[in-house]
């Protein structure tokens, strides 16, 4: 049983990462119906932004100071990239046919990866990420079940981020405007809502959460690399679709389910299909199965019914 509970802990940690990134997909998709393929790269840039911040700090800065600064640095880089991307790549295409922005998104994704690979110093292979939160520091949850400090940080950051976002969208004036824009963009404009600003806000919030995920995965695995955004991005989008795209609770639920499927399949799938080599395949198998039975995801989609 200990193995099971330990894997459950791991699944929750993984699910938290997917959920954080999935929120960005779901918000943007809910409002502009765009699969922002480059969102995975925004997550990756968060990790690199934090690394850059760390390297800029004098060595020996205590973790209590450097860690918050790294989070800020990561968020700053991700948010900047997302705003530029929205303004110059996506906004001009807002009235173009659906396929055009998707191709643009793939282009932006390739571009950002290659930008980091070619121009970030020594980023052709993975770069070491500072181990500020000692991974050896394990908290015992049971006789043989434990959670490491970076894992705990990931879950905490994710929960705080998710709760804040959901409160913001539900309670704040801007959050209401986001909901309105998602349900009916034209009428939202008639209410006096600046929909352009709302769309940027969705990109910014999504980028900030993705940056949090990027930093915490750097801390967990002790490295960041230019390619880390692709598979995480695809999985996070899968999570968003699983939960019902456009649906904020759905993205979180989808993230945790995907984390669970991946970790548990790795552990318990019948031989020879268990083990790390197959874990990514399992996520997609589950996605296909879920969509066959619930074509709009587990909690239902929430996107504008455009005329």
């Amino acid at each position: 049983m200990d193995v099971f509970f330990q894997q459950l802990v791991n699944a929750i940690v993984l699910g938290a990462t997917y959920g954080l990134v999935a929120l960005g997909y779901t918000m943007v998709y809910g409002i502009v119906q765009l699969i922002n393929f480059a969102h995975g790269e925004i997550y990756m840039l968060g990790g690199f932004g934090a690394l850059t911040t760390y390297l800029a700090l004098p060595s020996g800065t205590p973790a209590g100071i450097s860690l918050p600064l790294m989070l800020v640095g990561g968020i700053a880089v991700s948010v900047t990239a997302a705003v530029i991307m929205e303004r110059f790549a996506y906004r001009p295409l807002r009235s173009a046919p659906r396929l055009a922005p998707l191709i643009t998104a793939i282009g932006v994704s390739v571009f950002l990866q290659e930008l980091v690979r070619n121009f970030y110093p020594h980023a052709r292979s993975a770069r070491n990420f500072p181990q500020l939160v000692n991974p050896d520091y394990q908290i015992r949850l049971g006789s043989n079940v434990q959670i490491s400090a970076p894992q705990l940080l990931t879950v905490t950051v994710a929960l705080v981020g998710m709760v804040t976002l959901s409160t913001f969208v539900r309670r704040s004036r801007t959050g209401r405007a986001m909901q309105a824009t998602a349900q009916d963009p034209d009428t939202a404009r008639l209410m006096g809502i600046d929909t352009d600003r709302i769309i940027v806000t969705a990109f910014v919030l999504g980028a900030a959460l993705a940056a949090l995920a990027g930093v915490s995965s750097g801390l967990q695995f002790g490295q960041v690399d230019f390619h880390m955004g692709f598979i995480t991005g695809v999985k996070a989008f899968t999570a968003a679709v699983l939960g019902g795209i456009g649906n904020i609770s759905g993205a979180v639920l989808g993230g945790f389910i995907l984390g669970l499927v991946e970790v548990m399949a790795t552990q318990y799938a019948p031989d020879p299909f268990s083990g790390g080599a197959w874990k990514d395949a399992w996520s997609f198998v589950v996605l296909i199965i879920v969509l066959v039975f619930r074509p709009t995801g587990l909690l239902g989609e929430r996107v504008a019914a455009r005329a």
Partner: peptide
């Protein structure tokens, strides 16, 4: 050389634009 994919990405964005 190594910038091939980078150029590819930019090209996709520009063509769509």
């Amino acid at each position: 050389h190594d910038l091939r994919l980078l150029v590819f990405g930019i090209a996709l964005v520009l063509i769509m634009r």
